[in-house]
Design a protein around this nucleic acid. Structure first.
Length: 840
DNA sequence: ATGGGGCTGCTTTTT
DNA sequence: GCAGCCCCAT
């Protein structure tokens, strides 16, 4: 296959096209163009008409800030919205889609009616001044300019949760009007929608299965066994990762092999990759990465299909762009290739998924890939109190690979951030629980106001038991997912076999579950015969008696085949929920659980829950099909079901907290070795530390009112006890936002620190400075007064933005917020303590 | 074929 | 510290 450098080709095309015959103007040109035109027409009717029109829209959208409005009104051409944490990103996305469906390009358009009259324009000007905002909706339709029908809008997100939120908020926005034509979904669900229609063109069978990580792990492991590659010499995890990253980069097995060169490990992986893909093809299955890979391949290689979607999607909107990988970037480029109205929102400072292939280059270089892209920054934060935001700005400013943004808020400073070192992980947990229960007892807050965010899931155990003991209601997110439970996976495997008899991974999973006296030997033999004969495993099973090698288990095998065939017949007549019931009965699965006695009780309940979930699916989908259900099950996680109304404190990893906000946030385990983790500390790639720092930034910006940063003097981790120095990230926080407890506590610190047993495996890495900062009680106060002689109207110089004029000076906590109109870099809001301003 | 006991090795996670 | 895997005994 020659999908060589799809990405390069796509990017090249973008550049060529945009440089050539794009409909828009470069923004700079457009600005100049505007000004000239406005100056010229200032006194004539058309100019006044346009000004009044824009005033009317600005007024109608006055619940948004000016940057947000610009993001809503800029609909044509490529647009990058850099949306800081808590800057109203989803609101903008939703309002923008609603705007282009209602008004099209009304605001930016320079068209004027031919029959303008003095009185008509006067009326508009009058309305812009005096008409109450609510009534403006009646006038605005007059300005509609090529509105976009809902079905021509595409909105892509990462999680189902985000997709649902967009859908729901849009529905509310249109309250009752039919906008169901909008394509809003995750990358994977969008791709599935395409692949289900054009499966033939994508060289897939009609009822292909989706392998989740667990399934593909098995398939890769099997492939390695077949190739006689030992998992001890080449760990499965690394192989999986390499294959997955390779697919992210749109590289198939052959290309991967081509690039392996003389690298033995890569050559091995290339063989596994190829074998794995062959197994997937034989099973008529795709893994998660393939869903996107194959779609990009299809759109790239098939002009008809490509054109079909390119001519359909007039506006393409991509959420969380900082988390896209190369394949996803290519997909968005292909889908938006028709009209090039592509808008991406994201925050480079919140990119925390590099480890799974996200490339921050997509957002950092968006305006290079799309040379005429406009860039809008949303920097006003509506979420966090001043001190929290100050700390967040402080820490993220230490990163180098960023576009540079500095958030500001109109909110008061609020409380200082509490930083505490506790004795050990148990006292740390108790501190959290006590703080919560005290606050709840005093009726200051509800339990659900509190969130505990940790770096690793391993930290949750101690926390959970502290919560359990105290009786403070709590919930943990992301422990064992419902669909990861064995019994659920088994039943789902049966359903997959019914749809796709040759799904090898699922077949292996349930062929002997419950026990049917079909052992591993037999299964391997079946797989081998199938492979040699180029037929499906199920075909072999169905005709087991034909093969001498299988004679011993032939009876059991044909019984199994009969079971599957019967269930397949049944599946054609009964709905999914009923089918699940039949599967669990006829397969003997239910009987097996019941035989297990009381210990297995909840497994039975889980199956019942699965059935009610299927009923739910039938209710909400008019065309409920088994294949559709399986797709939903494969692509939907139960994290989406995080119930924000339950009155319980919530415990989760920082990663899963992204996009959420809480009045009070605890960050336990802020220690070098945990956060940042040992791997990061020992890494020679400074990008690793930057990503860790971004994660810390995400953690801090989850808090609305109050933040606790905690570490333990001693900690038992992985069975060994020892201690970690407080996280280097704590010392990166500007001191003026922190409350480090009484001076007494501080004085005790050096001794404690001296007696510490460090985990550090590579003492080389523990540099002198680190130890010093740890041991010395940090009391250096930052001097915000340093620049306080800068006044409104002064000329100043900034390291990056150059020279500019100070528009306003405002105190924000112990810091000062400057608004500065830079000569070349535009108007920016900067915090005094980081801005490093020099008066000139 | 199956079940139990010992051994290893270990971020983060959505789809 | 514990989960998940491998190997061995039945």
């Amino acid at each position: 296959m020659q999908i060589k450098k799809i990405r390069d080709i796509i990017i090249m095309r973008i550049n060529v096209d945009t440089a050539g015959n794009h409909t828009g103007y470069r923004y700079g040109n457009r600005c100049r163009f505007y000004k000239e035109r406005l100056k010229y027409k200032m006194n004539n009717l058309a100019g006044r008409y346009l000004a009044a029109k824009r005033q009317l829209f600005d007024k109608y959208y006055s619940d948004l800030n000016p940057e947000q409005r610009r993001a809503v009104f800029t609909v044509n051409g490529p647009l990058l919205i850099l949306a800081g944490a808590g800057s109203g990103k989803t609101t903008v996305l939703v309002r923008r889609i609603a705007y282009l469906i209602r008004y099209g390009n009304a605001y930016m358009s320079n068209k004027t009616p031919d029959d303008l009259t003095e009185t008509g324009v006067k009326q508009l000007e009058e309305a812009a001044l005096n008409m109450p905002r609510e009534q403006l909706a009646d006038i605005l339709p007059e300005f509609i300019e090529s509105p976009c029908p809902p079905y021509r809008v595409l909105a892509i997100t990462f999680t189902n949760k985000a997709a649902n939120e967009i859908k729901n908020r849009l529905e509310a926005e249109f309250n009752g009007e039919d906008i169901s034509g909008i394509w809003a979904g995750t990358f994977h669900s969008i791709c599935m929608k395409i692949l289900r229609v054009y499966y033939k063109e994508a060289a897939l069978g009609p009822d292909f299965s989706i392998y989740d990580t667990e399934d593909s792990k098995k398939a890769v492991s099997d492939a390695m066994k077949r190739l006689n590659i030992d998992e001890k010499t080449l760990p499965l995890k690394g192989v999986m990762n390499e294959i997955s990253r390779s697919k992210d980069k749109l590289k198939g097995p052959d290309e991967y092999a081509g690039e392996a060169g003389n690298d033995f490990r890569k050559k091995q992986i290339a063989r596994i990759y190829k074998e794995y893909q062959m197994a997937l093809a034989a099973s008529n299955a795709l893994d998660f990465d393939d869903i996107i890979f194959k779609t990009v391949k299809l759109l790239h290689g098939n002009a008809d299909v490509r054109q079909r979607y390119q001519s359909r999607f007039l506006y393409v909107n991509v959420d969380e762009f900082q988390d896209t990988n190369e394949a996803q970037f290519a997909l968005t480029a292909l889908l938006s290739g028709g009209y090039r109205n592509i808008m991406v929102v994201g925050d480079d400072d919140q990119s925390i998924y590099r480890f799974r292939g996200a490339t921050i280059a997509n957002i950092l270089g968006f305006d290079k890939n799309y040379s005429n892209a406009e860039v809008i920054k949303l920097e006003q934060n509506y979420r966090s109190a001043g001190n929290i935001l100050g700390a967040a700005n402080g820490i993220i400013s230490k990163n180098r690979g960023r576009r540079g943004k500095s958030l500001w808020t109109e909110k008061p400073d609020g409380e200082l951030i509490t930083v505490r070192e506790l004795e050990n992980e148990n006292t740390e947990a108790r501190f959290i629980v006590d703080t919560i229960s005290r606050s709840v007892r005093m009726k200051k807050r509800k339990c659900r106001d509190f969130a505990v965010l940790y770096r690793t899931n391993a930290q949750s155990r101690v926390l959970e038991s502290a919560f359990a003991k105290s009786g403070v209601p709590y919930r943990t997110l992301g422990s064992l997912r419902f669909f990861d439970r064995k019994e659920i996976r088994d039943i789902i495997a049966y359903l997959n076999i019914i749809v796709n008899h040759n799904d090898e991974s699922r077949l292996k999973r349930i062929i002997n579950e419950p026990k049917r006296k079909i052992g591993d030997k037999t299964i391997d033999e079946i797989a081998r015969i199938a492979r040699d004969g180029g037929i499906g495993m199920f075909d072999v099973i169905e005709h087991a008696s034909r093969y001498e090698e299988l004679s011993r288990s032939a009876a059991a095998l044909s019984q199994f085949a009969t079971l599957i065939n019967q269930l397949t017949e049944i599946s054609k007549t009964v709905p999914v929920a009923e089918l699940i019931r039949r599967v669990s009965d006829m397969s003997g699965y239910r009987a097996m659980i019941i035989a297990g006695g009381d210990a297995e009780r909840d497994r039975l309940e889980n199956i019942d829950e699965l059935i009610s979930g299927a009923l739910e699916y039938q209710k909400s989908n008019e065309e409920a099909t088994l294949a559709g259900y399986l797709e939903e099950v494969a692509l939907v996680s139960d994290v989406d079901k995080y119930d924000e109304t339950a009155d319980a404190a919530i415990l989760m990893t920082i990663h899963s907290a992204k996009g959420l906000e809480f009045p009070v946030v605890f960050l336990p385990g802020m220690e070098d070795g945990i956060f940042p983790g040992m791997q990061t500390i020992n890494s020679y790639d400074e990008n690793d530390m930057e990503e860790e720092r971004r994660l810390c930034y995400v953690a801090i910006t989850r808090a609305k009112e109050k933040l606790f940063i905690l570490c333990a003097h001693e900690r038992t981790l992985w069975g060994r006890s020892g201690g970690n120095p407080p996280s280097r990230f704590i010392s990166e926080l500007p001191e003026q936002f922190l409350d480090r407890g009484s001076s007494e506590e501080k004085e005790n610190q050096p001794e404690k620190a001296a007696s510490r047993v460090y985990y550090s495996q590579k003492p080389v890495k523990t540099r002198k400075e680190d130890v010093l900062t740890v041991n010395r009680p940090v009391v250096k106060k930052q001097e915000p007064a340093e620049f306080s002689d800068v006044k409104e109207g002064d000329r100043v110089r900034h390291r990056i933005f150059g020279d500019g004029e100070v528009l306003s000076v405002r105190t924000m906590g112990a810091d000062i917020l400057y608004e500065i109109a830079f000569d070349t870099a535009g108007t920016k809001k900067l915090m005094g303590s980081y801005a490093k301003l020099n008066k000139i």
